[in-house]
Design a protein around this nucleic acid. Structure first.
Ligand code: MN
Ligand code: MN
Ligand code: ZN
Ligand code: ZN
Lengths: 169, 169
DNA sequence: GGGTGGCTTGAAACTCGTTCTCAACCCCAG
DNA sequence: CTGGGGTTGAGAACGAGTTTCAAGCCACCC
């Protein structure tokens, strides 16, 4: 495991949150701070369940409705990005100072690798233009098998070819 | 409304389905035929609800469990692609003979425009390689506002900036 | 410090797409 | 025609996410 590049300035994001709340006349409660802080200090793409687990470990009790509501707030504030990697639930990550990035997802172990591509960035804008669309946002996820998982078990991700009903959720 | 380019050979897809079922020793029931046929003859990205509506119009009654099971089968057979445009449910489209394509989705009216990009195709493979991933599949969806929707109401897609809880499902 | 209005919170009910259950039923090889 | 194994459908179950609403907290005022 190589150490991932630091995700960046949790402090800055916390400051941004405070500012947003102040500007919008919304109270900054303990719960909101705890949720935002948990997410901002993470290097990963957290699910709501992940966040609840972190708070539980810190002996902070927050209802799940509040977690959802606060995540909504953070996304609206532009401080957090929401992702759907096709797992049946959403994941969230703090929006770092670095530019927009895309994701490579390992189908075997779930590892997520981030990358950026200036060329893709340009191309997506070009294509939207070509079709008369005003570009708003986009999503590029590449699914594959990471090098570590290619050794064995490369089969476990293939669902058996017949017999419907092999639920995935 | 300009007429969309024909989606292609429903007949071929039906044949493919028959072949798959035969090869896998699975009975081809009336229900399965009706569902596959409905999808194969469509030019759109159908939801399960859409499919049920089509069948209802044809006075064919099929339980929703069977619709889901058959779609599963069709996806496994490689004859249908499954999409999630972030609406809270899946959409399905027959896999035409034409190559893999990407989607432009209008946030205001829901219109879906398809496009392909040889360059993006090459790039995604390159990027997977670069990171040691064996590429499996990918998804590129560009969200924006189509030319027709840009006239007015360009605001209705923007959720109000405060007050959480403005459900979207 | 105490008061107050308005926003927030949490438990629980609810929503809704999707999956599971299981008894009745149909497909098709023999 | 028959039989046996897969299929079907109604309804129950599931699970992520949302709503409800009474009780509680925050921020600002004095
Ligand atoms: Mn990321
Ligand atoms: Mn398509
Ligand atoms: Zn892996
Ligand atoms: Zn539109």
């Amino acid at each position: 495991m190589t150490s991932p590049p630091p995700k960046l300035d949790a402090a800055e994001l916390v400051e941004g949150f405070r500012g947003y709340m102040r500007d919008h006349n919304l109270p900054l409660t303990h719960q909101r701070e705890a949720i935002a802080s948990a997410l901002f200090h993470s290097e990963e793409h957290l699910s709501v369940e992940d966040i609840e687990a972190i708070l539980r470990d810190e002996n902070v009790h927050v209802g799940k409705a509040t977690v959802y509501r606060t995540l909504d707030l953070l996304v609206r504030a532009g401080l957090v990005d929401e992702h759907d990697f096709g797992e049946g639930f959403k994941r969230f990550e703090p929006r770092s100072a670095r530019s927009h990035h895309e994701h490579l997802i390992c189908l075997a172990c779930g590892k997520v690798v981030e990358f950026t591509s200036e060329r893709i960035e340009r191309m997506k804008a070009l294509i939207a233009d070509e079709h008369g669309f005003r570009h708003h946002h986009h999503r590029l996820d590449i699914y594959g098998v990471c090098s570590e998982c290619q050794g064995r078990a490369a089969v476990t991700l293939e669902r058996s070819p017949d017999r419907p009903g092999g639920g995935s959720r």
